[in-house]
Design a binder for these strands. Structure first.
Length: 633
RNA sequence: GCUCAUGUAGCUCAGUCGGUAGAGCACCUCCUUGGUAAGGAGGAGGUCACCGGUUCAAAUCCGGUCAUGAGCUCCA
C-alpha cells in the first residue's frame, strides 16, 4: 500500500508504506527533520514521530511558526514541571500552557518559589535536557487516566479530567519519571530544548478564579539557540529602559504621590506642556471635523446616575456619594449623562443631526489597588470623549468617518501598528436584535471599506451595544486600548432622547460613544514608551537649548534665545558657568531635540553652531539657516 | 482585593552579628571661562514609609497599616 503525502506547495511525495512524519520531513531535507517540532496532518497537529498510514496533506512546523513556538514552549513547560517534581516531590502539578511569549506552569505549593529555587530548577532542567528523554504519548480511557492520576495523588489533574466528556480518548505524555495529562503534541525529546530561562514566579488563581486557591506560577521562555534567547533577554532589558515611569522620572513629567493618593496623577510642568500640546491638537482637529466642544461638571446628583443606569450597573466602579444639603452627589465615572443632558436641553430637528459633542472630560473610577500601573491604570483620568447623536441613516457614514479620524490622529502621533477588535452582542444585552444587527453590520462595513484587518470578539460587546476598539502596543508588547467606538442602545431610551423627523414626529436618535486617544493619561504613557522619551519635535516641552560656551557669550545667547521664542519655538538658555561638554550632556540626557551652541566665533559672525539630539554636531550656520533646519523637523 | 517581593537624602543605591546614618549624581557657595556627553574644592540635606511590640539599645528582629513592583482577577 503506497502512501501519498501532499506538501503545502502542492508537491507530492510517495512512500511505499507506513512512514513516520519525521522520516517524511527527512526525505524533504535532513535540516527540516531536525528543526521540525511537530507535524500538521490534514489540519490536525501530531507529534513528529507519528506514523502516517494513509494519504495526507502535511505541514511541518518549526520554531519559526507560531504553532511551532507553542509546541516548543509547551514542551519546555513540561520539562520544567518534571524538574520541579524531582526537586519538590510534594508539589502538585496543575496546568502549564504556552503563552504569547514563553510558557508558565502553575503548582500547588505553600510557599513561593524563590530566585535561588528557580536557579536550581533551571539546573535540574539542564540535566534532563542532557538525558534527552523522549516525550512518549499514550492514549487511554478517561477511567484509566483518572485512576492513574488518583494513584499519583495529582488531584488537580483529576479535576481537569472530570470536565472532559466520558467517551473521549485521553492522552498522557511521559518523559522519564514525569507523566502529565496533555493533548499534545510535543517535541520528540527533551534534548531538543537548547536554551531556556525561568523569568519570574508569582501567584495565580486555580483556573483564573479569585475564589479558588492561589497557586504558584513560574514563567519561562525557551529558544532553539542561546543567541535567540539572549536577544530576547536583551529585548526585555531594553523594554525596561523605555518604561514610561522611568522616563517620566528622568524627564520630570509627572509623579504619583503617596500622600495625594494612589492612582492620582500630578502633572509636572514638562508633562503638562506635552499634555497641553496633545490636547490643543486634539481640540483643533475635532473642531475641524464638526465636533462642538462642551464642558461638564465633575459631580452629578444621584437622580442623574439613576436615569443613566450607572447606579445599577456601574456602581462598583464609582466612589461613595457625598451629601450636599441632604442630596447624594456622585463624582463622575463617565461623561455620557452630561453630554446627553446637553442634547436634551434643546429640541432638535433631524436637520441638525449628526450632533457631535466633545469634551476632554476627567472621570474618576474605583480600581482595585493591585491593578494600578503608572499612567496606564489610574483612578482619575481624562477621556477624550465625544458622543455622536445621529439618525439611523447616518450610521454607516459616521462610523466610517470615525475610524479614519482615529487612525489619522493616532498616526499623527507616530503610531504605525494597530490591532483592531470588533466586539459583538453579549448574552445579556439591551436593545432590539434588529438594531444590534444593523449597528454591528455598519461597524464591519466601515472596516471592510478601508480593508482593515480586525479580530472579532464574539459576545465581547458592552451590554448596551457593539463596539470597535483600536489598540496600540507598548514597549513590552502589551496592548493598550486607545480608540473605542461604542454604540449605545441603552441611554437614548433612558434619557428619552428624541429629534423631530421630516414627518414632524419625534424619533429616537442613535448614540455613538467614542474616545480616540482613550485616556489622556494612558495615551501619554504609551506615547512616551513608543518614542522612548524622544518625542517628535512638535511635542517637546523644550525644543531648543541655547548654550553659550563662556560667560562672555551670554548676551549674544540671550539674543538668539529671544529671537527663537519670537518665532514661536520653545527655546531655553543654559547660562550656568559650566563647561560646554557638561551643558551638552545635560541637554542630551533631557532629550532636547536641538542645541544652539554659541561661542566667540559665532557671536562675532552672527552665527550659531547647531547640534541635534542623538545625531551630533550639524556645523556652524547663520541664524536663518538654523531656523530652516529646525522647521524641517 | 489575592500571592510574593520591596520601601534608607531630590535621584540611583550601600549599610556586616541589633550599638545611634553612608556613597555617587543633583542642589548651594567659592575657584575655574572652557569649542560638542561629567573641571576642582567646600557645604547643606535623613522621624531609615507609618504605627505598635521585643530589647539596656531597632534602619536592622516581630506584628499591623500604607505605598510601590511582578503577576492573578478586572478595565480607558
Amino acid at each position: 500500500m503506497s502512501i501519498k503525502v501532499t506538501l503545502p506547495d502542492g508537491s507530492e511525495k510517495h512512500f511505499p508504506g507506513s512512514i513516520s512524519a519525521y522520516d517524511v520531513a527527512k526525505d524533504i531535507s535532513p535540516r527540516l527533520a531536525d528543526a521540525a517540532v511537530c507535524a500538521e496532518l490534514d489540519g490536525k497537529l501530531y507529534d513528529i514521530n507519528t506514523i502516517i498510514d494513509h494519504d495526507v496533506k502535511a505541514v511541518f512546523h518549526t520554531f519559526s511558526s507560531a504553532i511551532g513556538k507553542e509546541v516548543y514552549w509547551h514542551s519546555t513547560s513540561h520539562l520544567m514541571a518534571q524538574a520541579v517534581k524531582q526537586l519538590f516531590p510534594d508539589v502538585l502539578v496543575t496546568i502549564g500552557p504556552a503563552i504569547d511569549s514563553g510558557f508558565y506552569y502553575d503548582f500547588d505549593r505553600d510557599t513561593n518559589f524563590t530566585d535561588e529555587e528557580l536557579v536550581s530548577i533551571e539546573n535540574k532542567m539542564k540535566e534532563l535536557v542532557k538525558a534527552d528523554l523522549p516525550y512518549l504519548r499514550t492514549e487511554l480511557s478517561k477511567q484509566e487516566a483518572s485512576d492513574l492520576f488518583a494513584k499519583m495523588g495529582e488531584t488537580y489533574k483529576a479535576e481537569l479530567l472530570a470536565v472532559i466528556p466520558d467517551g473521549d480518548i485521553i492522552s498522557i505524555y511521559q518523559q522519564g519519571d514525569f507523566v502529565d495529562l496533555c493533548r499534545g503534541p510535543h517535541l520528540p525529546s527533551t534534548g531538543k530544548i537548547k536554551a531556556f530561562k525561568l523569568l519570574k514566579s508569582s501567584g495565580a488563581y486555580w483556573r483564573g478564579d479569585e475564589k479558588n486557591k492561589m497557586l504558584k506560577r513560574i514563567y519561562g521562555i525557551s529558544y532553539p539557540s542561546n543567541k535567540e534567547l539572549n536577544e530576547y533577554l536583551l529585548f526585555l532589558e531594553e523594554a525596561k529602559k523605555r518604561d514610561h515611569r522611568k522616563i517620566a522620572k528622568d524627564l520630570d513629567l509627572f509623579s504619583i504621590n503617596d500622600e495625594v493618593g494612589p492612582g492620582l496623577v500630578l502633572w509636572h510642568p514638562n508633562g503638562a506642556m506635552i499634555r497641553h500640546l496633545v490636547e490643543a491638537y486634539w481640540k483643533e482637529e475635532h473642531i475641524r471635523k464638526g465636533y462642538k466642544l462642551v464642558y461638564t461638571p465633575h459631580v452629578g446628583r444621584a437622580n442623574l446616575w439613576e436615569t443613566s443606569g450607572h447606579l445599577g450597573f456601574y456602581k462598583d466602579s464609582m466612589y461613595a456619594p457625598m451629601d450636599i444639603e441632604g442630596q447624594d452627589y456622585y463624582i463622575k465615572p463617565m461623561n455620557c449623562p452630561f453630554h446627553l443632558s446637553i442634547y436634551n436641553a434643546n429640541l432638535h430637528s433631524y436637520r441638525e443631526l449628526p450632533i457631535k459633542l466633545a469634551e476632554l472630560g476627567t472621570v474618576y473610577r474605583y480600581e482595585r489597588s493591585g491593578v494600578l500601573h503608572g499612567l496606564m491604570r489610574v483612578r482619575g483620568f481624562t477621556q477624550d470623549d465625544a458622543h455622536i447623536i445621529c439618525t439611523p441613516d447616518q450610521l454607516n457614514e459616521e462610523v466610517e468617518k470615525l475610524i479614519t479620524f482615529s487612525l489619522n490622529m493616532l498616526s499623527h502621533f507616530g503610531f504605525e501598528k494597530f490591532k483592531i477588535y470588533l466586539s459583538t452582542k453579549p448574552e445579556k444585552s439591551v436593545g432590539e436584535e434588529e438594531d444590534w444587527d444593523k449597528a454591528t453590520a455598519s461597524l464591519r462595513l466601515a472596516m471592510d471599506a478601508q480593508n482593515l484587518e480586525y479580530d472579532v470578539d464574539y459576545g465581547g460587546g458592552a451590554f448596551y451595544g457593539p463596539k470597535i476598539d483600536i489598540k496600540i502596543k507598548d514597549a513590552l508588547g502589551r496592548e493598550w486600548q486607545c480608540t473605542t467606538i461604542q454604540f449605545d442602545f441603552n441611554l437614548p431610551t433612558r434619557f428619552d432622547m428624541t429629534y423631530v423627523g421630516a414627518d414632524n414626529a419625534p424619533h429616537r436618535p442613535y448614540v455613538i460613544h467614542r474616545a480616540v486617544l482613550g485616556s489622556i493619561e494612558r495615551f501619554f504613557g504609551t506615547l512616551i514608551e513608543y518614542h522612548s522619551g524622544n518625542l517628535p519635535m512638535w511635542l517637546c516641552p523644550t525644543q531648543i537649548m541655547v548654550l553659550p560656551i563662556t560667560d562672555a557669550q551670554i548676551e549674544y545667547a540671550n539674543e538668539i534665545n529671544e529671537r527663537l521664542l519670537l518665532l514661536g519655538l520653545r527655546s531655553e538658555i543654559d547660562k550656568r558657568s559650566e563647561k560646554i561638554g557638561y551643558k551638552i550632556r545635560e541637554a542630551e540626557l533631557k532629550k532636547i531635540p536641538f542645541m544652539c551652541i554659541v561661542g566667540k566665533k559665532e557671536a562675532e559672525n552672527g552665527q550659531v553652531a547647531l547640534r541635534q539630539h542623538t545625531v551630533g554636531d550639524l556645523g556652524v550656520m547663520s541664524f536663518d539657516e538654523a531656523v530652516l533646519k529646525l522647521n524641517e523637523e
